[in-house]
């Protein structure tokens, strides 16, 4: 996989129709995420960085331009195919973790494998291995409300990794964590990056962004010089 880029966006634009008024959230953005990239997208709220992240994660489709994720043209895919693409190539880490509240850490981690049709036994094994990877093997049977914020975010990272994605998209991954815990989470993401997973951070935190190998600054739906 190394060599061919994970994501290639060319002149990607996204406009929304709100009450008959069209609002441009993203104007002709071009961006390549390399297979071993460690990239931070920074910008104020409303700058279009979330819209860009949704597009890079195949959660949304561009209004115009071309977007290749894992070599596939997103604009030609239907919602079901996009779900499959997300499942196979993207791992999401959210600011608010988005763990299922009534579900154990192990089953939370195993969730993406459910939609891949992996048998239950194998799912549990792979989820357990991934929890071990993020240092939470002892928390496998715990529910989110029995864990600290940092632990919850590590469970979420394990969930993002369990399918073996080529890109990790992290939207303000340290936003709900204290700084020490945030550092630990970033260190985990960085060690994953060194193992060959592309990491894209979306953040407005300068210190977090500074740790990335490169930064992209967004303003008014465009990439501006850093």
């Amino acid at each position: 996989m190394t060599g061919s880029p994970a994501i290639v966006a060319t002149d990607v634009a996204r406009t929304y129709e709100l009450d008959g008024v069209s609002v441009t959230a993203l104007k002709a953005v071009s961006l390549t995420v390399e297979a071993d990239d460690y990239l931070a997208i920074v910008g104020t709220s409303g700058s279009g960085k979330s819209t860009l992240m949704h597009l890079l994660g195949a959660l949304d489709r561009p209004t115009s331009g071309t977007l290749l994720i894992g070599g596939r043209d997103v604009t030609t895919l239907d919602p079901g195919e996009m779900a499959k693409l997300r499942n196979e190539t993207i791992g999401f880490v959210f600011q608010s973790f988005h763990l299922l509240a009534r579900t154990t850490a192990q089953d939370n981690v195993a969730l993406p494998l459910v939609y891949r049709g992996v048998p239950r036994r194998e799912r549990r094994e792979r989820a357990a291995a991934m929890l071990e990877r993020v240092g939470l093997a002892h928390r496998a049977g715990h529910r989110p409300n029995q864990m600290t914020g940092g632990e919850q975010q590590r469970v979420a990272i394990a969930r993002a990794l369990v399918t073996g994605p080529s890109v990790l998209l992290a939207d303000e991954p340290t936003g709900n964590l204290d700084s020490a815990t945030g550092q630990a989470v970033l260190a985990l993401l960085e060690s994953l990056n060194s193992e060959g997973v592309a990491v894209v951070l979306v953040t407005h935190d300068k210190d977090v962004a500074a740790r990335a190998h490169r930064q992209i600054r967004m303003r008014d739906g465009e990439i501006v010089p850093a």
Partner: peptide
């Protein structure tokens, strides 16, 4: 809704 969004993000198709 949030749970549905998360399930979709990790690969649930509309059909699922």
């Amino acid at each position: 809704t949030k749970e549905i969004g998360l399930r979709k993000a990790v690969g649930a198709r509309p059909r699922d």
